[in-house]
Design a protein around this nucleic acid. Structure first.
Lengths: 341, 341
DNA sequence: TTGTAGGCGTTATCAA
DNA sequence: TTGATAACGCCTACAA
């Protein structure tokens, strides 16, 4: 498995290696016929420039690192596809590492990537990430980093995120407009900014529509289906069931629906359910789950573009991209089919 | 962002770069104190060997490539986690590319990875991959490749797969033992060996239990939920509904369940459903879906180990690892709770 | 035990 | 338009 090198081609054609190099990087003047001859012979010999040597000589790795908290759920997988698309087109390789929602693992991942000299980093922090100071220090030292998804709006660095407050608001308002009177919100962990933003949106909707304190409640649940199930068990035990529930995400919502059904409660007749960060399953379960679709693919592309710019042009002002979602209303939250949403 | 190099450390300590190199690769004799001093100073200066230079000088990239048909579903994501674990421990980087179930994209991915000189490849072919000849040629030329998941048992190369026939058989037999009399199988595409194997298992179970031809049927469906839905629509239209259905995978099974429910049929009372290649959703939908769990994480680890061996020791005999699944019986396929399965 | 120097496969500067 | 050659940062025979 010996690879053909630039020298082999040079020898074969009796030209210098510089000419070969020139032919492959149309930067320099080189006679058209020579170039064509070289490219043709190289093709025949199966020569490709050795990317490792290119990188060494250019002092660039053309690698970028992506650190996500997990990619079991389709959310980050889809984002990654968008990221890869952009970087592939620019000859970058994308190294993906997942932190398994563990802050130490995340720090190790980032350090591994930095040590392996990636030209830039995209980071979506884990649940309880306490590494932001470290990341920001790197960023301020000039290391190209773009953040994604789970960071605060006012973080002093480039980032791409959903406007969680806005879409938390819309999700809630949809329930109100459907005529539900008593609405609970199962939030994510309170140390997760994505969650507090959505909760803010929930509160804002309550305020706007002047819903009294007796008629709403915010319960800290979590990220996973089992968190939703646990909360429903408590509510049933305490005979404290609302008309409608806005869940932090679809996973929680599915846990909620499952538990409601197994206790003989109907969705949406007894309790309406609204999810968030739509999954493909939303359309497959019964009832179909209303949710907020996030433009994952575009998020990935946008993030990649920001990083690419940062790598090529250096940093001027940090840029924040706030993306919009889509409210997809389905069976789980419809009371009155005549009401517009 | 200038990186500290081996020279900087050498200069600082007034030793030669060879000593630094030795200290970092405990291969050569080097005085213990010198080594410790070097490592300590290097640490202070923030020196890490430049992986690109290491790779160039060792003529190895320490990269391996993984090509999967998709990673939106958790199946390949979980496998990848297993792969990464093994290779990370051996200082390899794992480049992941997904083919979006497109055979041309797959070929491009593989060629990109080969051109970027990965030391080895793991390939899980797409649906209609017609690139196997090319891959086998590379393999026979000595390029380390291990195949995964969607290849035939008798492929002359190392591979890791589930024993699909066996677990197709078990899945079917479970339905028979539950007392279902008329059992249909929704297969995957017939050009997908994984599917034909499962179908073989289905037929074998029918033969073993002497089920007459009137009482079973094999219908080619597909991979996705919508394929399952379409088949159910047909069956309803033709008034040709069995007691039980063994679906190619959980996605199809979920489509089937959804369509059955929306037509007022109960699962499992009217029709029992068995899935395959268990997803996390299996436990969350109503009724919970019976399925065959695949040991994805172990598959990833095993595949990685085979490739690592191939890279380090060269090829002797191709090795085939046939893994076992687990039959998880849940609500969707239980008729009689007293029957053992 | 340590240092010197050549090589890995490129790119890029400088001469020709 | 081309060629010679020094870098890029490291590893490793060989010499000391």
């Amino acid at each position: 498995m010996k690879h053909v090198t630039i020298k082999d081609v040079a020898k074969r054609l009796n030209v210098s290696i510089s000419s070969i190099s020139r032919a492959f990087n149309d930067k320099y003047d080189i006679k058209k016929e020579t170039k064509e001859l070289i490219l043709k012979t190289a093709e025949e010999m199966g020569y490709h420039p050795n990317p490792i040597a290119q990188k060494l000589s250019q002092n660039k790795t053309f690698n970028i690192g992506v650190v996500v908290p997990e990619f079991i759920n389709e959310y980050y997988s889809e984002i990654i596809i968008g990221i890869q698309e952009v970087f592939m087109a620019h000859k970058f390789q994308v190294l993906i590492m997942q932190s398994d929602e563990n802050t130490d693992q995340e720090l190790r991942n980032v350090k591994t990537l930095i040590n392996s000299m990636v030209d830039g980093l995209i980071i979506a922090p884990t649940l309880k990430s306490n590494n932001m100071d470290f990341y920001l220090k790197q960023y301020q030292n000039g290391y190209p980093i773009v953040f994604m998804s789970r960071v605060e709006k006012n973080l002093p660095a480039s980032k791409v995120l959903l406007d969680n407050e806005k879409w938390g608001f819309f999700a809630t308002e949809h329930l109100i407009r459907q005529g539900y009177k008593k609405i609970y919100h199962l939030s994510g962990p309170k140390f997760l900014c994505v969650s507090t933003e959505r909760t803010k949106g929930f509160k804002k909707a309550m305020a706007k529509h002047k819903i009294s304190k007796d008629n709403f409640k915010i319960i800290e649940a979590g990220l996973f289906a089992k968190n939703g199930m646990e909360v429903i068990e408590d509510l049933i035990y305490n005979r404290d069931m609302p008309d409608a529930i806005f869940c932090f995400n679809d996973q929680v919502a599915m846990g909620v629906i499952k538990k409601l059904k197994s206790n003989g409660l109907r969705v949406p007749e007894d309790v309406a359910i609204m999810g968030h960060t739509e999954t493909r399953m939303a359309e497959l379960i019964t009832p179909q789950l209303s949710s907020i679709f996030q433009p994952t693919y575009e998020m990935g592309k946008k993030t990649a573009e920001l990083l690419l710019k940062l790598i090529n042009e250096g940093s001027d002002q940090p840029e924040t991209v706030l993306l919009n979602g889509v409210l997809n209303v389905r069976e789980s939250s419809i009371r009155d089919k005549s009401v517009e949403f």
